[in-house]
Nucleic acid binder design. Structure first.
Length: 731
DNA sequence: ATTAGGG
DNA sequence: CCCTAAT
């Protein structure tokens, strides 16, 4: 504790009122481990990281993201923002007012499908994802659903929907081919391909990953018996397919980071794990990071897989310039898919002129042929054929696709990746809702006619929505498990009934510009407890809130009413911290009672459920900072603060920063005891150098003198504690 | 969670 | 200010 450069200034007549704390034992900070050790550690770090990641992933069952809107003007402006902090209204009305919104907003993870459903699967093709410029309103989309065996790549699809438009159940599908897509550059989203060569879409994750790691709910990780380090290439390969939307580029691994810091398990995790991970990610281990891509492996067991299929991340770190990642702004990605329509009654898709080639094609060849043989027709909305109603769904909107692909990846792999992503989104974890003239048609048993859908109907008023069908399991399929209790346990059975789903949104705002930076959504499973301490602050420009969506039961009887009811948006309390945000000009300045926002506000009163179950499914998004390590904004100490600090230290001595904080900076949330300690350190330094060398706001010499005096005094005082007492005060 | 120190 | 180690 004794500063090496301690100055022996006398302590002028200052009397120490308090007994200084006994000095801490000498801290020995051993030299850094040597490289060898480090390398050894790496393995562990990786392991730990992976484990942690898995846990985290499981915790944050991630799902797709919600499109973020552009800046929402409404947010944060005006005087007391507390109420409108999040502009919840906007959100609600815009996104959730209608059930469909919420539903559409999220794309549930898909659950595993049986491996061989190859045949006779309907294919959903034509997937065009449009970015929405603002919070998704509803997903009404125009989806063309093929119930037949339409298959084709190229995203062109024509389907004929007969009587039943239902889908969920029949949607197990096999997707082949790639989709032509155009991603908007502005977002620079990247897609990671992984679907490659998979003609049957089964969760890639399931196959690849996870055989390697099993996670226990407690967080322990079991590794395969690999003895030797798995070659990177191998890992690469395995993991490659696993991460959808989360994969990091070679150089980056911060995806993991991010999540690791942002999402925390509901239950305390072994600290060490976090720490390690974090450490690794943030510092010297960064280089190793690439190996961690695997972190993305959400998967792991089948059971879980459905859980975190999708996860999205925001990238805002320039430090990864190398990666084709960019800061995500306010828009979504759009993937446009060219499509052609065919009015023939056969559900066939035509190849687009461009003929997107199918990368993995093969199995679809025949179909394609057929398709090509069919005359392409006009794109019309429907032509009656008998009493059939034909639907041509041009596109549908999905929340957001987050995919990353290395720049070096081939276009083909990009396509496949997109395909995979789409597939994942459209997996059987999703349902389709029918909206006619703005109203949802819930009764699956009604005939189209009864529902008012006929050839004569203006199908423009007909839309399809994507609804979470998280727990939905096709009857023909073996039940998949949900990450209810032990998401990590592959053998976990899927609960037959899911009572509700929670959708969590994370709104990130730019404190300075007062605008939304992004909006993320998480699709959570039930049994999630919501952390209540969210509020905006410089260090935590996020707001989370959750949507509680009733879910349907999984059993047969439930299928009928599978439609998701309009979500209920729980009102959340104000989440703004005026003091920190200063959004409004007239925001009271650090009023003591302005700290009105206790450090925690319940955004959504989500009743804690069985903790055990939550343990791993956690959603405790309490981010560390926006990004991995975005520095806090600098806040120079004012003279007044220095004064207060000096006074406090004079009284309390050094080494009691917490007390100093409490005693003199109680209401200065932005000043942590560490800050105070650091400031003192710099003050001492400043005081010891010539005035010419000082920078920043000049601190009155008088204060500096006191700093030196106090410093000297306490330094001696301490040494006294250690043993000899030399209260000498030199001057 | 604090404290001490190095960066 | 950040990050860590050691409490």
């Amino acid at each position: 504790m004794v500063s090496k450069k301690r100055l022996d200034y006398g302590f002028n007549g200052y009397r120490a009122p308090i007994i200084p704390r006994a000095p801490r034992s000498i801290r020995r900070r051993g030299p850094r481990k040597n490289s060898i050790e480090d390398s050894k550690l790496c393995a562990f770090e990786l392991l730990a990281a992976v484990a942690g990641k898995l846990l985290q992933e499981s915790e944050s069952s991630a799902s797709s993201n919600v499109a973020n809107g552009k800046v929402q003007p409404g947010i944060c402006q005006g005087g007391n923002e507390k109420e409108q902090s999040l502009d919840d209204k906007a959100l609600k009305s815009e996104s959730f007012e209608r059930g469909s919104c919420a539903e559409s907003a999220f794309v549930p993870e898909i659950s595993i499908q049986e491996q061989n459903q190859a045949e006779n699967n309907s294919v959903l093709e034509q997937t065009s994802v449009r970015a929405s410029s603002d919070i998704p309103k509803k997903v009404d989309c125009d989806i063309k659903l093929g119930t037949g065996e339409v298959k084709n790549a190229d995203g062109n699809t024509i389907s004929e929907v007969e009587g039943s438009i239902c889908c969920g159940d029949s949607l197990d599908r096999k997707v082949e081919g790639g989709a032509e897509l155009h991603a908007r550059d502005d977002n620079n989203q990247i897609i990671d391909s992984s679907l490659a060569n998979t003609s049957t879409v089964k969760d890639p994750i399931e196959e690849d990953v996870n055989t390697n790691l099993l996670i226990k709910s407690e967080g322990s990780v079991q590794l395969p018996l690999y003895r030797d380090p798995i070659p990177d290439a191998l890992l690469q390969k395995h993991w490659n397919n696993v991460q959808l939307g989360i994969r990091d580029d070679d150089e980056n691994s911060f995806g993991c980071n991010k999540s690791s810091t942002r999402v925390r398990p509901f239950r305390p995790q072994p600290r060490i794990g976090h720490r390690r991970i974090r450490k690794m990610l943030t510092s010297k281990y960064r280089k190793v990071a690439p190996k961690l891509k695997g972190c993305g492996l959400y998967n792991t067991g089948e059971g879980i897989r459905s859980f975190y299929q999708y996860r999205k991340r925001i990238y805002t770190q320039e430090r990864f310039q190398q990666a084709p990642i960019k800061k995500r702004k306010l828009s979504d990605h759009t993937f446009a898919v060219a499509y052609h329509q065919d009015t023939s009654s056969d559900s066939i898709s035509n190849l687009p002129e461009k003929g997107t080639k199918m990368d993995n094609g093969s199995s679809s060849a025949n179909i394609l042929q057929r398709a090509s043989g069919t005359p392409a027709t006009v794109r019309g909305h429907q032509k009656a054929k008998d009493s059939h109603v034909k639907f041509s769904i041009k596109s549908f909107r999905v929340p957001e696709l987050y995919i990353e692909v290395p720049e070096t990846a081939s276009v083909g792999s990009l396509k496949r990746t997109v395909m995979e992503a789409v597939t994942a989104i459209l997996g059987n974890g999703i349902r389709v809702g029918v909206v006619l003239q703005g109203k949802k048609v819930r009764d699956d048993n009604r005939t189209l006619q009864q529902a008012g859908i006929s050839q004569s109907t203006n199908l423009d008023t007909l839309g399809f929505t994507l609804e979470p069908s998280f727990s939905h399991v096709s009857p023909s399929m073996t039940p998949k498990k949900l990450p209810s209790a032990l998401p990590c346990d592959p053998d976990q059975e899927l609960p037959s009934t899911v009572t509700e789903l929670f959708f969590c949104f994370k709104i990130e705002i730019d404190i300075n510009s007062r605008s939304y930076l992004s909006v993320e959504s998480y699709h959570l499973s039930s049994n999630i407890s919501w952390s209540t301490d969210f509020h905006f602050s410089i260090d935590q420009p996020f707001v989370y809130f959750a949507l509680q969506v009733p879910c349907y039961s999984n059993d047969d009887s439930g299928i009928g009413n599978a439609s998701v009811d309009p979500p209920v948006v729980n009102k959340f309390d104000d989440v703004m911290d005026n003091e920190n945000l200063n959004f409004s000009p007239q925001t009271p300045k650090n009023e003591p009672n302005d700290a009105s926002v206790p450090d925690s506000k319940a955004l959504v009163p989500v009743p804690p459920m069985n903790a055990e179950a939550l343990a791993v499914v956690p959603v405790n998004p309490k981010p560390k900072r926006t990004e991995l390590s975005q520095r806090r904004t600098r806040r120079p100490f004012s003279v007044a603060e220095v004064e207060a600090l000096v006074a406090a230290v004079e009284k309390l001595g050094t080494g009691r920063w917490r007390d100093v904080k409490l005693g003199a900076f109680e209401n200065a949330d932005h000043r942590t005891y560490v800050d105070l300690k650091d400031k003192w350190k710099t003050l001492v330094h400043t005081a010891s150098i010539s005035p010419q060398q000082r920078r920043g706001e000049a601190v009155p010499q008088e204060l500096l003198d006191r700093v030196l005096s106090a410093h000297s005094y306490w330094s001696q005082h301490q040494s006294k504690q250690q043993g000899k007492h030399q209260p000498s005060v030199e001057s």
